[in-house]
Amino acid sequence: MATIPLINLGLSFLPVFLVLTIMFRWSLSIKDGLVALARMLIQLLIIGYALNWIFAVDTPLIILSLLAVMLIVACSIALRPIKDKQLHSYSNALAAIALGGGLTLGFIIVWVLESQPWYKPDTIIPLAGMVFASAMNTVSICGERFSMELNHTSCVETAKKQAFQAGLIPLFNTLLAVGLVTLPGMMTGQIFSGVSPLIAVRYQIVVMCMLTGAAGISAAIFLQLSANRVQGKQEAQPNKQ
Rank of each mutant, 00 (worst) to 15 (best):
G100Q: 06
D58G: 04
Q224R: 12
A38R: 07
I77K: 07
K120E: 14
Q116H: 05
L183A: 05
G48P: 08
L176K: 12
V131L: 00
P197E: 01
W111A: 11
S91R: 12
A98E: 01
A215M: 08
L51D: 06
L103G: 10
L28A: 14
G48A: 13
A36E: 04
V16M: 15
L44I: 15
K83L: 08
R25E: 04
T182Y: 09
I72L: 09
V178E: 07
N151M: 14
S147F: 09
G102M: 01
G216V: 10
Q43G: 08
R25S: 07
F132K: 06
K120I: 02
M187W: 00
R229N: 13
P238G: 10
R145N: 06
I7H: 13
L44M: 15
A95L: 15
L113I: 12
K161H: 14
S89T: 13
I199N: 06
L71D: 10
E235K: 06
V19F: 14
K233D: 13
I191A: 03
I199Q: 09
M1V: 10
G100A: 06
A74P: 02
Y90D: 13
M187I: 00
I82R: 09
S196Q: 14
W26G: 00
G194E: 11
Q224G: 07
V178H: 02
I217Q: 01
W118V: 05
N92M: 13
P117Y: 10
A36M: 05
A236T: 02
S193K: 06
I199M: 08
V19C: 05
I125G: 00
P238D: 11
L150N: 04
I63W: 00
A214Y: 10
I97A: 05
G194V: 03
L176S: 11
I62M: 04
Q224H: 15
N52R: 12
S147P: 02
P170S: 03
V230E: 15
S134T: 01
L183E: 03
D84R: 13
N151Q: 09
G10H: 11
M130S: 04
G101T: 10
W53S: 08
S226F: 00
P81G: 07
I47G: 05
T3S: 02
S91L: 13
Q116Y: 01
F146Q: 07
Q241K: 05
W118Q: 07
A56M: 12
L61F: 04
V19D: 03
L64R: 03
L94E: 02
R229F: 08
P81I: 07
L103D: 13
T104G: 02
L87N: 09
G194N: 08
G179I: 09
V73D: 10
V195I: 15
L79V: 08
L64E: 02
S76K: 11
N151W: 01
M210Y: 01
Q43T: 03
A166M: 06
N8R: 02
V69D: 08
L171A: 09
L34Q: 03
F107Y: 15
